[in-house]
C-alpha cells in the first residue's frame, strides 16, 4: 500500500446546499469519517481531486432512537455513538450488534454509519443489519429530496443509487413492530490465501402475533455472499403464521441455501461456505425469535392495561 496520499483540494462547507453546489462545481467526493475513502485513495483505487468534508454541516449529527418513532442517524454520526444508547440496543439490536462486532473496533470511533452504508462494499456488516431493519437512506440533491429503501440502494460493488452530487443526509429505520426482535451474526475468517473463504454475515428481524404464539412478520438477510446483502422472501413466507421451532428455523435456512449460487469454482470452499451459512442463518433466526418472544416492555404493558380497562 502506498504511503502517501496524492494531493487533492479540500472544502468544508457549512450547509447542505453549499456542499451540493461545491460538488457540482468541482466534481468533489463527499467525506464523512474517511474509513473507506482514505485507504482507497492510498491504494490508488480512487483518484479524487477534490474532497468535500460534511463534518461542519449542522444538522447532520442528529441521532435519535425511539421504539415508537424509529431510528434516525445523521450522516456525521460515528458508529460508536449508538453503542451506549439503550433503545438502539433493545429495539434495533441487529444494527447494535453489527457495530459492536466491527473490526477493528477503532473504526466505530472514526467511521460514520451512513458512510458505511453508502460505501457499497460487499463484505461490510452494517448494510446487512440495516436491511433486516428495513432501513432507508434519505438524500438531498440538485433535484430535491429522495428516500431510497436500502434494498434498492446497491447497484454493484462500490456503486450505489445516489445521483451525481447527491448527498445522503441520514439513514432511517422505521419503528419495529410491538413484539419483535432482531439479531445480527457473522462468521469471520480472514482471507489468508486465494482459496480461503471470506466471512459471511446474516441478520433477521422477527415479529410475533399478539399472543406471541405464531410468527407474524419475518425479514431474513444474508450478506457477504454477492455484491450486496439479499433478502430471502421464500424463507420469510415459510416462517409466517408458524409456531417457532428449531426444525422450522433449519428449514428456513435450507430454503435460503437453495437460492444461493456458488461464488467460486472451488468445491470445498463452497461446501464450507454453504455449511457455515446454514448454521449462521438458523442461529440468527432463532436468536431474533427468542428475543421477540421474551421481550418485555413495562411501559407498553402498562399502556395496554390502561387501554383495556377503559
Amino acid at each position: 500500500m502506498g504511503r502517501v496520499l496524492l494531493p487533492f483540494d479540500y472544502y468544508e462547507p457549512q450547509s447542505i446546499s453549499d456542499a451540493i453546489q461545491l460538488s457540482r462545481d468541482s466534481f468533489g467526493t463527499y467525506l464523512a469519517g474517511g474509513c473507506t475513502l482514505v485507504p482507497a485513495l492510498r491504494r490508488r483505487e480512487r483518484r479524487d481531486s477534490c474532497l468535500i468534508s460534511i463534518n461542519k454541516i449542522e444538522g447532520l449529527n442528529e441521532f435519535y432512537a425511539h421504539p415508537k418513532k424509529g431510528l434516525t442517524v445523521g450522516a456525521r454520526v460515528h458508529a460508536a455513538t449508538l453503542l451506549p444508547d439503550i433503545w438502539a440496543g433493545k429495539r434495533f439490536a441487529a444494527l447494535h450488534e453489527a457495530i459492536e462486532q466491527l473490526y477493528p473496533p477503532h473504526i466505530g470511533n472514526m467511521g460514520s454509519i451512513v458512510g458505511n452504508l453508502c460505501s457499497a462494499i460487499p463484505y461490510y456488516d452494517l448494510p446487512t443489519a440495516a436491511m433486516a431493519l428495513n432501513a432507508e437512506i434519505h438524500t438531498t440533491g440538485l433535484n430535491g429530496k429522495r428516500i431510497i429503501p436500502l434494498e434498492s440502494f446497491y447497484l454493484d460493488t462500490s456503486k450505489n443509487a445516489l445521483h451525481d452530487h447527491e448527498l445522503a443526509t441520514h439513514a432511517f429505520c422505521p419503528p419495529p413492530q410491538p413484539d419483535s426482535g432482531s439479531c445480527f451474526k457473522k462468521i469471520y475468517r480472514s482471507r489468508r490465501t486465494t482459496y480461503d473463504s471470506h466471512k459471511i454475515n446474516a441478520a433477521a428481524s422477527i415479529a410475533f402475533d399478539q399472543d406471541r404464539q405464531k410468527i407474524q412478520y419475518a425479514r431474513i438477510v444474508l450478506g457477504s455472499w454477492y455484491f450486496r446483502p439479499h433478502r430471502y422472501q421464500k424463507a420469510e413466507d415459510l416462517l409466517k403464521n408458524q409456531v417457532p421451532s428449531f426444525d422450522l428455523f433449519t428449514e428456513a435456512a435450507s430454503i435460503v441455501l437453495e437460492d444461493l449460487k456458488p461464488i467460486t469454482d472451488m468445491e470445498w470452499v463452497e461446501k464450507t461456505r454453504f455449511a457455515q451459512a446454514k448454521v449462521l442463518l438458523r442461529d440468527t433466526i432463532a436468536q431474533a425469535a427468542s428475543r421477540a418472544k421474551s421481550r418485555q416492555d413495562p411501559f407498553e404493558d402498562a399502556s395496554q392495561i390502561i387501554q383495556n380497562t377503559k
Binding site: 479540500y10 474517511g34 482514505v38 473496533p105 470511533n109
Partner: peptide, 15 residues
C-alpha cells in the same frame, strides 16, 4: 482523539 482510540494512519489531519 477526544478520548477515543483512533487509527491516525487513516484519519485526515484536517479532520
Amino acid at each position: 482523539v477526544n478520548g477515543r482510540p483512533t487509527c491516525s494512519c487513516i484519519t485526515l489531519g484536517m479532520l
